[in-house]
Computed example of a mutant assay.
Amino acid sequence: MEGEAGVSVPQRSRTGLRTERLLLRQWRAEDREPFFALNADPEVMEHFPATLTREESDAFAAQSEADIDRQGWGLWAVEVAEGPDAGAFAGFVGFKVPRFDAHFMPAVEIAWRLARWSWGRGFATEAAREALDFGFTHIGFGEVVSFTAVPNVRSQAVMRRLGMTHDPDDDFDHPVLPEGHRLRRHVLYRARSAA
Rank of each mutant, 00 (worst) to 15 (best):
T53A: 05
D169N: 08
A37K: 13
A111F: 00
W119Q: 10
R14M: 08
E30M: 05
V176Y: 06
I110R: 06
R190A: 01
T125P: 12
D58T: 14
D31N: 14
F136E: 04
A50E: 14
D173R: 13
A37N: 05
L132K: 07
D85F: 05
A61V: 14
D171R: 02
W112E: 02
D41Y: 03
V187P: 01
D170A: 13
G83K: 01
A81W: 10
P10K: 07
R99K: 15
V108S: 06
D69Y: 01
R184T: 05
D85H: 11
G140R: 14
T51S: 04
R154D: 03
P98V: 02
F147M: 08
D169E: 14
H174D: 09
L132M: 09
F95P: 11
I68P: 10
G94N: 11
F147R: 08
Q26N: 08
A157P: 05
G6I: 05
G91A: 05
E109Y: 03
G120H: 01
G122R: 01
P84N: 03
G135K: 14
G120S: 00
W76T: 11
F172W: 01
H103A: 15
E82P: 04
T148Y: 00
V93F: 09
A124T: 08
V108N: 04
T137I: 01
E4H: 10
R190V: 13
D85I: 04
L75Y: 00
D58M: 12
D67Q: 15
P34L: 10
G16Q: 03
R99G: 08
R161A: 14
G94C: 07
S64T: 07
F35W: 15
A88W: 08
A62F: 00
A195K: 13
L22C: 12
E126D: 03
A88N: 11
E126P: 02
G3I: 01
G180Q: 09
F100R: 09
F60C: 06
A81H: 09
H166T: 06
G83R: 02
V144C: 01
R12N: 01
V108H: 04
R116P: 00
V153I: 10
R113F: 00
F36L: 13
E4Y: 12
V150C: 00
A5G: 02
G180P: 08
D41F: 02
G94R: 10
G16C: 03
A115T: 02
D173L: 15
A61T: 12
P178T: 06
P175R: 07
T137Q: 15
R121S: 02
A40F: 02
P98F: 01
F89C: 09
F136M: 05
W27F: 10
P10Q: 06
P84Y: 04
I139Q: 11
E126L: 01
R113G: 00
G74N: 13
W119E: 00
E79W: 08
W117V: 12
R99D: 15
D167R: 15
R54H: 12
F104D: 07
A149T: 05
L177P: 10
E179K: 14
G74A: 13
L75G: 07
A62K: 12
S57V: 04
G142F: 04
A5L: 04
P151M: 01
F35Q: 13
F36V: 07
F48S: 10
G74W: 11
T53L: 04
E2A: 06
V158F: 04
Q156C: 07
A81Q: 07
D69H: 11
Q63R: 15
H186V: 07
A107P: 09
F147Q: 03
L24A: 07
